[in-house]
Amino acid sequence: MAETIIELVNLTKKYRSFTAVDHIHLTVEKGEIFGLLGPNGAGKSTTILMMLGLTEPNEGQAKVCGIDPTRHPIEVKRRVGYLPEDIGFYDDRTGLENLVYTAMLNRISEAEATQKANALLKRVGLENVDGKKTGKYSKGMRQRLGLADVLIKNPQVIILDEPTSGIDPQGVRAFLDLIIELRNEHGLTVLFSSHNLHQVEQVCDRVGIFVQGKICAMGTITDLSRQLFGDADHNLEDIYNSFFDEGGVHHE
């Protein structure tokens, strides 16, 4: 039996009369790269905030590594590495200094922190700029440093929220390759939230398609193609577009 790492049951978040996340069910297993795919405003980021214990659901429950983030947010944060779209660093410090600081906040000794930080900088391709202040980093460099920052506390789960926006195509390819390598080497579970169809198709084992706060379809691309079209010949773009008409309106 595969180990369930993320489990969302009837998860719902409302802001007055607006329902941002509408009774969703989702499980992600250990070592899986799961894609949350949907347009901006579909509810992906709100779902992530509930998984991290940063906002409380109105109904339902989230569990991450078997822990309820609403009741035990610190325990969840110890196990989860979160990379938002715009990650913040101390811009007057170098990449190495930022990583060492994060590690020490996570109760890692300075000597071990420095060793791990140097190894991770090499792993994400930033070993040649370890002395450069992060305020001078490009967007792609910041995201790679963000990945190292996430990894330095040895998480069981990585949550990536639109991690490739603003990165050039070559940088995106390198970043996505790195995600796959890390999963393969360390058995990490990855939740990849994006509105970029091609990137999700490249890296994700399964996808959940988010539309107006609901998960309208979930499975491998082959499974979804069979469910929607009766064959395995359709790609993620065909599947995704089947939920919208030309004006971008969801078909109920």
Rank of each mutant, 00 (worst) to 15 (best):
V9I: 14
V203S: 01
D223P: 01
E185Q: 14
V124H: 04
L178W: 01
V21T: 10
C65S: 10
V157Y: 05
I33K: 02
L236R: 02
P155D: 09
L99Q: 12
D168A: 01
V200L: 00
L228I: 15
A217M: 11
N184S: 12
F192L: 07
V200E: 00
Y137C: 10
V124Y: 01
D238R: 05
F18L: 11
I6G: 03
N118L: 13
M104H: 05
Q227S: 08
D86G: 09
E56Y: 11
Y15K: 01
P155A: 10
S194I: 06
I6H: 02
H251I: 14
N154Q: 07
K122H: 13
T70L: 08
V211M: 01
I209D: 00
V64W: 02
T94G: 12
S193F: 00
Q202R: 15
Q227G: 01
R93W: 14
N196Y: 01
P39C: 11
D68L: 10
I74F: 11
T27P: 00
R71M: 09
E185T: 10
E127A: 14
T222C: 05
C204P: 03
P69A: 10
L224P: 04
K139N: 11
I179A: 02
C216H: 06
I152L: 13
R79K: 15
E7Q: 15
D68I: 11
V211S: 04
I33L: 06
V207S: 02
L197A: 06
M50C: 07
R183Q: 14
I209K: 00
T27I: 08
Y137R: 09
E201P: 00
N98S: 08
L236P: 01
F34E: 02
K132W: 08
G146P: 12
L197F: 00
N196Q: 14
L121C: 05
L224K: 05
L160H: 00
C204W: 03
T102K: 14
G166T: 02
L105R: 14
D92W: 15
L99C: 07
L37F: 05
G187Y: 03
P73T: 10
E201R: 04
L105N: 10
S109G: 06
G146Q: 12
A20E: 06
L105D: 02
Y240W: 06
L37W: 04
G247F: 14
